[in-house]
């Protein structure tokens, strides 16, 4: 058994070592894999704030992931075609600057989460799961049937977006950007969870009646957490679009929601680094099983059923034997 702090350090070290190793042995796809892990991990960290710490089982986080992706894609699309997004009442043009795209993606993700959350947080339990799923699906169908940005075929991004002073085309540089953002998101999450707000949020998860009776409006607490969660996942979505240089409705599909949820649960809910461990495992499994058989999803499904039925607490729980956070 190892301590959770040691495990987290090991995880980050591995995440740094894999792409370096990839460059040394001239296997550049390892850099891309590690970048995927960092980005999916970030999406999972975002979901974990709502699902783990807040107890809000959202099955619609693809909405924010995809929204972030489309913000990046649409801005770049307009910048490259040199046509403004809007010319009235003010001129809005596209951009390929990451430093503008990221905050916009997060803002958009948070706004979307507030809108969806305001409706779905009126309910709880199974209703909440189904409603978050349904609203994400609504965006999915909207993206498919709206022809301006590629509709069903998706929207290619012909250049990698830019970051001042860095060559973002270099896979290792792009990986470092993603890793730095992941660490930032992890740090913010740890602060949020340990704060007054985090105390109220976790209290609301465990005993809503009690939390209300001490004068805390749990609806607004939850809505705030949902917005933060949406913003983080949207940032991951923007990076994912940049990595693939492509956005499509599949980023909004419920399979994506399910995958982000798998990462979180595989890693262990309410564990800060759980989603990163989960993303690592998921990408590894995808590569390993995918190399063995075309039907790897069949075996992945069987494994997941096994994890749910027999291994509560996820990977981090299994390795540290520590019960999850209160």
């Amino acid at each position: 058994m190892i301590s959770e702090v040691r495990l987290n350090q090991t995880l980050v070290l591995l995440l740094v070592a894999v792409p370096l190793f990839g460059l040394i042995v001239d296997q550049p796809y390892l850099v891309t894999l590690a970048t995927r892990v960092a980005i999916l991990g970030m999406a999972g960290v975002g979901l974990n704030l709502a699902l783990g710490y807040g107890g809000l089982v959202s099955f619609g986080h693809a909405a924010y992931f995809g929204a972030g992706g489309y913000v990046a894609g649409i801005l770049a699309h307009h910048a490259l075609n040199v046509e403004p997004i809007a010319d009235w009442p003010i001129l809005i043009s596209g951009t390929t600057e990451m430093l503008i795209i990221w905050p916009l993606a997060m803002l958009f993700g948070a706004a979307l989460a507030v809108a969806i959350g305001a409706l779905s947080l009126r309910t709880s339990g199974v209703y909440f799961i189904m409603i978050t799923l349904a609203f994400a699906q609504m965006l999915f169908y909207f993206a498919i049937s709206w022809p301006s940005y590629g509709g069903e075929d998706g929207l290619p991004i012909y250049v990698r977006n830019r970051f001042p002073g860095l060559n973002t085309f270099d896979p290792l540089t792009f990986f470092c950007i993603c890793l730095a953002l992941l660490m930032l998101v992890l740090w913010v999450t740890s602060r949020v969870v340990g704060s007054r707000f985090g105390l109220a949020l976790q209290a609301a998860r465990q005993n809503a009646e009690r939390t209300t009776s001490v004068g805390i409006d749990i609806f607004r607490i939850r809505l705030t957490a949902f917005a933060l969660s949406g913003a983080m996942t949207a940032l991951a979505g923007a990076l994912y679009a940049d990595l693939n240089r492509f956005v499509s409705p599949s980023m909004l599909s419920w399979h994506t929601s399910g995958e982000i949820m798998i990462l979180v649960i595989l890693g262990g809910v309410t564990r800060l680094y759980g989603p990163v461990a989960g993303a690592g495992c998921f990408v590894l499994l995808e590569q390993f099983l995918g190399g063995l058989t075309e039907h790897w999803q069949f075996w992945l499904g069987l494994m997941l059923v096994g994890v749910v039925l027999f291994a509560k607490g996820g990977i981090v729980g299994l390795l540290t034997r520590r019960p999850a956070d209160a």
């Binding site: 949820m261 499904g301 997941l304």
Partner: peptide
Amino acid sequence: LATFALIL
């Protein structure tokens, strides 16, 4: 999660 896995 389990029923999602069953879909796969």
